[in-house]
């Protein structure tokens, strides 16, 4: 239950079997290394090594691709919802 200096957060104590990645600059802990790399560059960008930055770029690119698919899904969901609503309106107002 450590206090963190960045946002004043508390962390739950992970079980012994759980993977833990600790941020070297603050008390943030993560389940996955990817999240740690993201955090390090997003929060402590000026302290990161060139290697971390390189890794961040690689991970960002992978995430951007996933995000693109995610956004495509969202756009179709928006379209679908609008159409469904229009349909319901048509039935409710005509019928």
């Amino acid at each position: 239950m450590e206090k963190n200096s960045v946002l004043g957060l508390e962390f739950s104590t992970p079980r012994a079997s759980d993977p833990v990645e600790t941020c070297p600059f603050c008390e943030f802990i993560f389940r996955e290394r990817d999240d740690l790399i993201f955090h390090m560059v997003e929060v402590h960008s000026h302290k990161c090594s060139a290697k971390t930055n390189e890794e961040y770029r690689r991970l960002s690119l992978i995430e951007s691709n996933k995000l693109f698919i995610y956004h495509l899904k969202i756009c179709s969901l928006i379209m679908l919802t609008m159409m469904a609503l229009a349909y319901i309106y048509a039935f409710a107002l005509v019928g």
Partner: peptide, 29 residues
Amino acid sequence: AIIPTWLFVLTGGVIIGISFLFVSLVTHR
């Protein structure tokens, strides 16, 4: 009433849902 209450309430919910979908397109910190 021109549109029934349930439809009106549903529309409100949909607007919030859609606003979340639009907001989720803004991902650049």
